[in-house]
Write a protein that binds this DNA or RNA. Structure first.
Length: 731
DNA sequence: CTAGGGTTAG
């Protein structure tokens, strides 16, 4: 339609192949253009053609000339023609550089926008301003420096306004050194310059410098105070923040505003002091700031963190102009408090309210799904996100990857990941971890190599995934290589997690000497994860002496954890040291250590079925046990020998006296098989680690019933297929 | 849109 109108108005009497061709080109441009740009484009085109209108009427009789004179000027493409390329080219040809820069900046094409600068003889404040703004927004330090240098070399003399913008840009890009240089260069700093500098320092945690400037500045306004207060809050110094807040209140000429009170509220939430928060709440009511959505959010945050969730909800319900942030905060508050149902129900209220959830909302709900391995809900959220649209470069996208990976749906995780134009480090890490946990350690390592090639800098969390992939793949030396590369190649510091991973790696393969050496020379105290890994390794290789050392360390760190006692007892039992076994039993009784009951669950037709060990409460219990009895016979026929040599079972409270008592995962798997059509993949979740016997039994089961069976235990995913498990018996 | 607050994963 637009094409037709444009065409008629410009070429009322003539259609030639050439003009049609041009219109085809224009059409392509228009189709790519956004609504906003379309208007600009049309205006530009009509300006152009109205100028040459007289010629057009004359030439309507002689078509050849019309074509040569009237050709819409489509110059050689200087700028990428992916969208609005021709428009930008036209604008540049017309020397409308301002507009060209504006359009490129709006499309976040920073590099090209800076290129335009080089075409301009005398760039003006507007151009620089737009560019600096975008650099600031994109946190593009290098580009920002380029523009800054351009300004320095040009004839343009920046005013204080421009200086402050540059200052802010450097601060936001995290380059406080550059910012400080600019700050020191400015001859006539205004209050704003000081405030930008202070908040720059405060934001990155250089509180000392911030405070120094704050103390030495000629005069302060509420911006200065608030910047300082929020700096303290952000960097874990809530007490200093509240102290400053109190001092500020004593200055009568200073008004607390919504920014100040929200920071103060965050501070009292951080030290979990309800009465202080209530005091500030009173203050807020007195000065009438209670209608602000952000203040509300801080208020509800404070009440939530100080243990008054109902009060938080009460305030939430009373707030009239709740924005999406308030909703998100309230929903997440429920999740934090373990109230998944309340959180989800508020989320569905939100969907009904018509307010569009943002990336944070999606991320919050998806992360909850990931924690709960609620893939079903996660998928629904994903579907909703597809309908309303979401940014593929956002928390939400990486939360999706995380959710699928955590739920063991590695295919969907990969699909989302592949769809991301520029996956962030968190997505890479989730994906690597996902592969590692889902029995695809080689894919995990391949992906890590891809990450390095992409130029993204891995961090300490990424290496946890990499090291655990090596562990799962049994690649001990490769793992050690990666471990050392953390320091010498990537300049990162080893964390306790890295040490725990390497100890896991070494002790699983029985290289205890190296493991001990490493423990003795590590710079921090070994944590419980490290000792637990070591203990696990000792169990595999029956290393009684070292197991004792590891267990003793664990008894100090977490005396209440039954797993340690049970594992140690098992190691003693395997070594035939029954006296020691009895001792441990006694210690457990004396200390009142209770074993965590093992439970497994399976979701079928949106209903979750939970099983305890030896459970017979399920309505289909009879069928389940009958099925397991039949299965047991077939398994024995195939060569299955039950593992009953462990006196104290791994982690579950159970006596394996008769075959009638099955571990919860066996029951869940059995139920899955009888409740679904042949061939359906069974997916079972378990809160504890699965035991050797069940692991073997499920391997047989997968072969006998010809099903893919996925069991996610507390450690990892096991994917059983045709008699083997993806973990290759290494877990 | 010259400075400031709340949600923030692996």
């Amino acid at each position: 339609m637009i094409m037709l109108i444009l065409y008629r108005s410009l070429f009322p009497s003539k259609i030639t192949v050439d003009t049609l061709f041009h219109f085809h080109l224009l059409h392509c441009e228009i189709m790519r253009a956004t609504q906003f740009h379309l208007q600009k484009f049309l205006k530009l085109m009509s300006d152009r053609f109205s100028l040459s209108q007289p010629k057009r009427t004359i030439s309507s009789s002689s078509s050849p000339r019309l074509q040569s004179n009237q050709k819409p000027p489509i110059p050689k493409t200087f700028f990428k023609s992916n969208s609005n390329g021709a428009l930008v080219n036209l604008l540049c040809k017309d020397k409308k550089f301002n507009e060209a820069i504006e359009i490129l900046c709006e499309q976040k094409r920073l590099g090209e926008a800076i290129q335009v600068l080089d075409l301009v003889d005398h760039p003006n404040a507007a151009m620089y301003s737009t560019l600096i703004q975008l650099c600031l927004h994109q946190r593009a330090l290098e580009e920002g420096k380029r523009v800054h240098n351009h300004i320095k070399l040009s004839s343009f003399v920046p005013g204080i306004f421009m200086f402050n913008r540059i200052l802010d840009m450097y601060c936001k890009c995290g380059s406080l050194v550059d910012a400080r240089n600019v700050f020191d260069e400015i001859s006539e700093r205004d209050l704003c310059s000081w405030n930008i500098m202070i908040s720059g320092y405060a934001k990155v945690g250089q509180i000392k410098e911030a405070r120094h400037l704050f103390d030495s500045m000629p005069q302060r306004d509420h911006f200065s105070w608030t910047a300082m207060i929020s700096g303290y809050v952000r960097h874990d110094r809530p007490k200093d923040a509240l102290e400053l807040y109190r001092v500020m209140q004593r200055h009568e000429n200073l008004n607390c505003n919504k920014f100040t009170v929200s920071s103060a509220l965050t501070a009292s939430a951080a030290i979990q002091t309800l009465h202080l928060g209530k005091e500030i709440h009173g203050h807020i009511l007195r000065i009438g700031l209670d209608s602000d959505a952000v203040v509300w959010s801080a208020l509800s945050d404070m009440y939530g963190k100080c243990g008054s969730l109902e009060e938080a909800r009460h305030i939430f319900d009373k707030t009239l102009d709740r924005d999406i942030v308030s909703w998100t905060a309230m929903i997440d508050r429920y999740f934090e408090d373990g109230k998944r149902e309340d959180g989800l129900s508020l989320f569905s209220d939100l969907l009904r309210s018509g307010i569009r959830p943002n990336e944070f909302t999606f991320a919050g709900v998806l992360n909850e799904c990931a924690d709960q391995t609620a893939e079903d809900i996660g998928k629904q959220v994903h579907g909703y996100m597809m309908r309303v649209g979401f940014d593929l470069i956002s928390f939400a996208a990486s939360a999706l990857v995380h959710m699928y990976a955590k739920c063991g749906d590695i295919d969907n995780a990969r699909k989302v990941f592949k769809g991301m134009p520029r996956p962030d480090l968190v997505s890479w890490t989730s994906m690597i971890n996902g592969y590692a946990q889902n029995g695809q350690p080689h894919e995990a390592l391949q992906l890590f190599e891809l990450l390095l090639k992409s130029g993204t800098q891995p961090d300490h969390v990424t290496f946890v995934g990499v090291l655990s992939a090596c562990t799962h793949a049994g690649l001990v030396d490769k793992g050690l290589e990666y471990f050392h590369s953390i320091k010498w190649k990537h300049g990162l510091t080893h964390t306790a997690d890295h040490y725990a991973c390497v100890i896991d790696l070494l002790s699983r393969s029985g290289r205890f000497k190296e493991a001990e050496d490493l423990i003795n020379q590590m710079p921090m105290k070994p944590d419980k994860f490290l000792w637990a890994s070591l203990l696990g390794g000792c169990r595999i290789h029956s290393n009684v002496e070292l197991a004792k050392r590891a267990a003793e360390a664990l008894f100090v760190i977490e005396p209440e954890n039954a797993v340690t006692y049970v594992t140690l007892a098992n190691i003693y039992a395997t070594a035939g040291k029954w006296g020691e076994v009895a001792k441990i039993r006694k210690i457990m009784d004396d200390r009142g250590v209770l074993k965590k009951p093992g439970l497994s669950w399976i979701e079928i037709k949106r209903k979750v079925h939970v099983f305890l060990v030896g459970d017979s409460t399920h309505p289909k219990s009879r069928e389940i046990h009958d099925f397991l009895g039949e299965l047991s016979k077939k398994m024995k026929g195939e060569g299955y020998i039950p593992h009953t040599d462990y006196v104290l079972h791994d982690v579950e409270e159970e006596q394996k006296e008769q075959n009638l008592s099955y571990h919860s995962e066996r029951l869940a798997v059995a139920f899955g098989i009888i409740a679904t059509p042949p061939g359906t993949t069974i997916k079972v979740f378990k809160n504890l680690r699965t035991c050797v016997d069940c692991h073997t039994a499920i391997k047989f089961t997968s072969k006998i019933v010809e099903r893919k069976i996925i069991v996610r235990d507390s450690n990892r995913f096991h994917c059983f297929e045709d008699g083997t498990c993806s973990c290759k018996d290494y877990w």
